[in-house]
Design a protein around this nucleic acid. Structure first.
Lengths: 234, 234
DNA sequence: CAATCATTCAATTATTCTATTGAATATCAA
DNA sequence: TTGATATTCAATAGAATAATTGAATGATTG
């Protein structure tokens, strides 16, 4: 019979929400959110994550273990490294949902962007739809300006890899007779802003795509992913 | 120009993730998750929430203020009550994403359900699609077995309100020549389980719908909502 | 087998969070 | 204005969390 005493219902609910709060607790630190954000681009070693976040390696390791205990990330060995990655697309959706909730309700976020990225006022970012239209009509070139290993892990169809650090050295290879669309990790990454600024300073018609790979994929659009062999071998 | 010094990039990121962690921290307590789950059904007063969660009123009030500081909930006055509700549909999506992440990765959740709701093995729950098919062909009656005020706040199209507590008294009004589909707050609510058990014990052909109103709405399906006047008047 | 490298562990301290209690405030009704 | 009701506030003690440091582990390379 399904009838239960009120006290036992309470015990069930307590255990239920306690389990779910394991995930909530894992999301309760700015450093861990940054780690999730980075891992949404590609798997990484502890050391790589420490370098990108400017945190001590031991601190990153401990945060990763908290994320792992909440089952938000997986680990595998590769040589003497341990490479961490998000446990699944569910985790990407959770992170994006958290970020969108912030964008919807935290006025401070807008303020941060307008303070630190004031040049975004000059040129509007391209939406996914606007970019798709330009690309499908052949009037634009798509640049992935993230580091090469992130491109290798997953990138948008038709995208060419040209990390922003190498952009200045390759300007002569870029076309002047079409639009150039640059994308990076997502709306809070500055790589594409920097690329667009450099390109425009040299007379190119450049635009920033307002999303990155995770948002593109969440929209149900196809991406080019590294083979499973490269991602999970041994 | 968009070029920034590495240190100032770091300062921007620190502030960015610190803001987003306000939301993560709000999700870090089992009690607050239960409050969000309840508010996903309908707005409620502090006292109502305290009664449902069996927590002291002052404790609930403090948790609500934490949720409010993270902008996950809104308040309005109604008489001498303050009625809290989720700030927007984004918050619903965030909560559902967190819950789904738990379902995907926390084995303990499955274990909890099989321990506390063992009767779920007997009769499979109806998916949204299965329910839609039955309902559209007229071969089923849809019962909302939640408390009446939650039905009033929002319910599925075609649903009749019959709270599980009143079900036993109204059995004679229910049809025996079609399927009966009962739904409640969602997959972890037991109202529909109880309703199905009672109905089957009396010979009805009853089924539990595996989702509630929030999941139905997230799927993009229509719901019947209380008028704005009822929801937000003075 | 020793050396190196990447990562984790363990112990400490400082900080933040949580629940509880009783008092304070604010609103409505008589 | 008084009393009742709903909620918040303030103070506290206990618990959990975070960052730091240096040592320990474990796999790979020479």
């Amino acid at each position: 019979m399904a009838y239960q005493h009120p006290e036992s219902k309470r015990a069930f609910k307590n255990q239920l929400y306690e389990q779910l709060a394991r995930i909530g607790k894992a999301l309760a630190s700015p450093h861990r959110l940054e780690l999730l954000d980075l891992l949404a681009q590609s798997e990484r070693s502890v050391e790589e994550l420490a370098r990108e976040t400017t945190l001590p390696v031991a601190t990153v390791s401990q945060h990763l273990q908290i994320l792992h205990a909440a089952r938000l990330v997986d680990v595998r060995r590769r040589g003497r490294q341990r490479r961490y990655r998000l446990a699944s697309g569910e985790v990407v959706r959770l992170w994006l949902a958290l970020r969108r909730t912030g964008e919807a309700h935290l006025a401070e976020l807008e303020h941060l962007v307008s303070t630190w990225l004031p040049e975004r006022r000059h040129w509007p970012a391209l939406s996914i739809d606007a970019a798709l239209e330009l690309l499908q009509s052949g009037r634009a070139l798509l640049l992935d300006v993230r580091p090469r290993d992130e491109y290798a892990s997953a990138h948008l169809p038709q995208a060419r890899s040209l990390p922003v650090a190498e952009l200045a050295a390759h300007l002569s290879e870029l076309p002047r007779d079409c639009e150039i669309i640059a994308y990076c990790r997502g709306p809070y990454c500055v790589f594409a802003d920097e690329a667009v600024a450099l390109l425009r300073a040299h007379g190119f018609r450049a635009w920033r795509l307002e999303v990155g790979v995770p948002e593109w994929q969440e929209r149900g659009l196809p991406i080019i992913q590294a083979q499973a062999a490269e991602r999970s071998v041994l």
